[in-house]
């Protein structure tokens, strides 16, 4: 059974990883979508998850903030177990909704289809969670939100509604929305996959600048050139298994595992995976 038990204090030394994914497994019915996946992400790291469609990358990412449950293994963030408590006898128990929500509030997530709130304007999209979930005072939240909109280059759109923005602008708002909660970890799920090619760059630029600021990120992406540029480490998954993990140079230039080699080859020859 997994050894990190949430009730035990975890030392917060600098080399303790922020995210520990320990032998995590998940099934949809009879299909095992995650098999014994283990990974760590240190604070300040940018980890890219790559692999063919259906390899379990997105599912793994959604397990990290418990949008998906997992049945085996354990994920911890800063020593706190995600979604479940494991009792001394090894049995699992789902945490209370309140605890799960509190953890999610510390983990930002950006989705493929932006998922902005269409009935709120841009500024309200950013401020609604800090105000209503954390009961923060209005003025400082607005100030923070405006600074973030400035940063993603959309301060002038603060009173627009999502439907009035381009895909790239919506996605930048979505990134700013996640950051307004001041998360300790940012999850990015194929954030450019729904964008027109000419809009991809503006979103990737924002993410690059966040990485430069040392924001810890886990990124599921099909943009290989981007993954190589932004990541401190890259993990390759196929069929629910983590096949190889390493620094971008090693993964892209010197892949060892045969699955990864053929994946890279197909990528180089221009196939969309």
């Amino acid at each position: 059974m997994s050894e990190p038990v949430s009730s035990e204090p975890v030392s917060r030394t600098t080399d303790t990883p922020l995210v520990v994914i320990d032998r995590v497994g998940k099934s949809f019915g009879r299909v095992e979508v995650l098999k014994d996946v283990s990974l760590t992400v240190a604070a300040g790291d940018v980890l890219s998850l790559i692999g063919p469609s259906g390899s379990g990358k997105t599912t793994l990412l959604r397990c990290v903030n418990y949008l998906e449950s997992y049945e085996r293994g354990l994920i911890t963030i800063a020593g706190e177990s995600v979604g479940v408590d494991i009792r001394p006898d090894g049995s699992r128990r789902r945490k209370a909704d309140r605890e799960i929500a509190a953890l999610r509030a510390q983990v930002g997530m950006v989705f493929q289809h932006y998922n902005l709130f269409p009935h709120l304007d841009v500024l309200e999209n950013l401020t609604v969670a800090p105000r209503r979930v954390r009961n923060e005072a209005d003025a400082p939240v607005r100030e923070r939100a405006m600074a973030l909109l400035e940063r993603v280059g959309l301060a002038d759109k603060r009173n627009r509604y999502p439907s009035e923005l381009s895909g790239g602008q919506q996605q930048r708002v979505a990134i700013a929305r996640a950051l307004t909660m001041q998360p300790r970890l940012l999850l990015l799920d194929e954030v450019t996959s729904a964008l027109d090619p000419e809009l991809v760059g503006e979103v990737l630029d924002v993410i690059l600048s966040l990485a430069g600021d040392g924001i810890t990120m886990m990124i599921v992406t099909h943009e290989m050139a981007f993954a190589r540029e932004v990541s401190t480490s890259v993990a390759f998954m196929a069929d629910g298994v983590l096949i190889e993990k390493g620094p971008p140079g090693a993964i892209f230039d010197a892949p060892r595992h045969e699955r990864l080699c053929s994946f890279m080859q197909r990528y180089r020859s221009g196939h969309r995976l």
Binding site: L67, A101, R104, A105, F111, N115, A129, M181
Partner: peptide, 21 residues
């Protein structure tokens, strides 16, 4: 359903999500 995902990811509880989103 993605609206539920978005609210959950921001830490909203079920009732908040329902009334706000």
């Amino acid at each position: 359903r993605t609206q539920w995902d978005a609210g959950r990811a921001l830490g909203m509880r079920r009732l908040q999500l329902f009334t706000i989103v």
